[in-house]
Design a protein around this nucleic acid. Structure first.
Lengths: 203, 203
DNA sequence: GTGGTAGATGACTGTTTAGTCAAGTTCGAG
DNA sequence: CTCGAACTTGACTAAACAGTCATCTACCAC
């Protein structure tokens, strides 16, 4: 009945509590209580609070990755990947709102912007995942340029701009508990690339 | 020699410490030590930690406001206001980096995205200032539309988009301690409005 | 000079924090 | 059945935490 059951509950409790408040506001005791696991067991599975949080970030990313892999599948036209991604964001945050009662934005991004100033393992992990996410955009933009769907230019810089826009919208959505900006993302995100609107059907 | 001297030092210490790390990571003791003020004096001036932080947010905003008022002066053409604002952001963050050793992004925005999930006085204040900042953009966009420098449309929605882009760029700059995105803001921010580049000189 | 007030001080409280640990339980492999 | 490893437990520590308080000091108005 055990088999890492308590471990999983701890990880999930950490994700839930930190995402719905913040890294600094969540204590080991609170995580243990939510997971119905005793303090001793916590430190049987994890060396420290930070160790758990790094695992939580990884675990959460592990659930998002297959979704992103599908959306950014190379078998799809590159601009269509982006279009699906923008649509996905508001759908996803709608689900998050149903589940948690509030718009929460991006988990590792929230943790990251709170923790980066001190070079801890948590900060490094959050930065790593942030970069990993940006690379999906980068690849799509590069592919779009390669097939002429987008004018040539630095795909890294374009991805940074687009990423800033998307993460900014997600943070605003979190701060104001408002999905409106995200719902408009499929139309407005293209602006960050200098395009007036979603691309037309291509071959 | 006193006259609220210790009080000012406490406020400044709170700004410095919280901005360079986070709300949750900074204790009253740490603020007192940095300000060279004893615990008792702290609670002579402030009712609680949150009370100080609200004051710190207000004080910091008080130093930014005249700068924004100048930049967004109604005596300037509206698009030029925005252009100056975008240029100001990277200049300002350059100064911040010199002073604090790192790019820190926007103070109240960092506090806000950490604290909004629990409805505290700090969260309310951060949201209030975030809104106040966005209104500068809104006004400039409305004025731009009124004089035909920008096509008609919902200025509130446009301001939200632009604001998401700007705050996203600031947060990315903070997370990666990188001014590059901000330096490009005078060129790229216009994209969020559907304009390819900075506006040409108008009458 | 006297009294009042604004500020300063350091010792104090009670709680919460991250993390430890020795002694237990469960359970499957040999 | 037995052994050891995986896991659980609750009591423990030491530090950090926010906040309190009586007492002291400096200075200004009268």
């Amino acid at each position: 009945m055990s088999r890492g059951d308590a471990r999983d509950r701890l990880v999930q409790a950490a994700i839930d509590l930190i995402w719905t408040s913040s890294y600094g506001a969540v204590s080991v005791d609170a995580i243990c209580e939510r997971a119905q696991v005793r303090k001793g067991s916590f430190y049987h599975f994890f060396a420290s609070k930070d160790d758990l949080v790094v695992t939580a970030l990884d675990t959460h990313w592990g659930t998002r990755r297959p979704v992103l892999d599908e959306i950014f599948s190379a078998s799809r036209p590159p601009l269509q990947r982006l279009q699906r991604y923008f649509a996905h964001i508001s759908e996803r945050q709608g689900e998050v709102r149903e589940q948690y009662g509030r718009v929460l934005g991006c988990f590792h991004h929230a943790v990251g912007s709170e923790c980066v100033q001190k070079p801890t393992a948590v900060a490094a992990k959050a930065q790593e995942l942030s970069l990993a996410l940006r690379r999906y955009l980068e690849t799509a933009l590069r592919d779009a340029q390669a097939e002429g769907a987008l004018p040539p230019g630095d795909p890294v810089a374009a991805a940074k701009s687009l990423f800033a826009f998307v993460t900014g919208a997600l943070t605003q959505a979190r701060v104001h508990d408002d999905l409106e900006l995200l719902r408009q993302l499929p139309q407005t995100a293209w602006l960050a690339l200098g395009m007036a609107g979603p691309p037309q059907r291509s071959t």
